[in-house]
Amino acid sequence: MESVAARLVRARQDARLTQVELARSVGVAQSVVSRIEAGDTQRSKYLIPIAQTLGVSPEWLAQGVGPARHATAAEIRRYECAGAETRLIIQALLSIEHGLPMPAEAPASLRPLLEAARLMVRQTPRV
C-alpha cells in the first residue's frame, strides 16, 4: 500500500505545485510539506487543508481509502446533463485524466479512441 508521503508527492505533482507553492497555499512552512513527503510525519494536522488545496480526498491522502479525487461541481453538472452514453464517455475521460482504471461500461466502439487518449496522457511530460 502506498504511504502518505507517496500519495502527497503524487497529488502535489499532479497539481503541478512545488512544495513551496503548496505550503503557501495552505499557510504553513515549506518544511511541513517536506517532512510529510519525506515520511517523517504521518499524522499531520495539516493533511485536511493540504488535501483540500490539492483537490483530493482527505481520507485518500491520510489513509489511502476511497478514490483519490472527488468530482468537481462543474464535472457533476456536466455529467448530470448528459445522456447515458455521454456519461460513460465522461467517466472514462475523467478516469484517464486522473490515472484511474477505465469504466468497464465504456462503449466498445469508443475503446480504441479512449485508449489512444490514455496513451497521450501517459506520454505528456509533467512540469
Rank of each mutant, 00 (worst) to 15 (best):
Ser57His: 07
Arg10Cys: 04
Arg78Lys: 12
Gly83His: 13
Glu115Cys: 04
Ala74Asp: 15
Glu75Phe: 06
Met102Phe: 07
Gln42Tyr: 09
Ala51Gln: 04
Gly83Met: 03
Trp60Thr: 02
Ser109Asn: 05
Pro101Arg: 06
Pro125Phe: 14
Arg10Trp: 07
Val33Lys: 05
Gln63Arg: 15
Ile48Trp: 01
Ala71Ile: 01
Ala117Arg: 08
Leu110Cys: 05
Glu2Phe: 04
Thr53Gln: 09
Tyr79Arg: 15
Pro67Trp: 04
Arg77Asn: 02
Glu80Lys: 13
Gly64Leu: 08
Ser3Gln: 13
Gly64Asp: 07
Gly83Glu: 10
Ala29Arg: 15
Asp40Ile: 07
Leu100Pro: 00
Leu93Ala: 11
Thr53Lys: 03
Ile89Met: 11
Ala5Met: 08
Leu114Thr: 10
Leu88Met: 15
Ala84Leu: 12
Leu114Arg: 09
Glu21Asp: 10
Ala73Arg: 07
Arg7Ala: 09
Glu97Arg: 10
Pro107Ala: 13
Arg7Leu: 05
Leu114Ser: 07
Arg43Gly: 12
Ser34Arg: 13
Tyr79Asp: 03
Leu114Ile: 15
Val4His: 09
Arg16Met: 06
Arg12Trp: 00
Ile50Tyr: 03
Pro103Met: 06
Val56Met: 06
Ala104His: 13
Pro49Leu: 11
Ser57Trp: 03
Gln13Phe: 00
Gln123Cys: 10
Gly27Thr: 09
Ser57Thr: 12
Val9Ser: 04
Ala73Lys: 11
Ser25Met: 12
Val4Leu: 12
Ser31Gln: 13
Met102Leu: 14
Ile36Thr: 04
Glu59Ala: 14
Gln91Ser: 15
Ile89Tyr: 08
Ala5Cys: 07
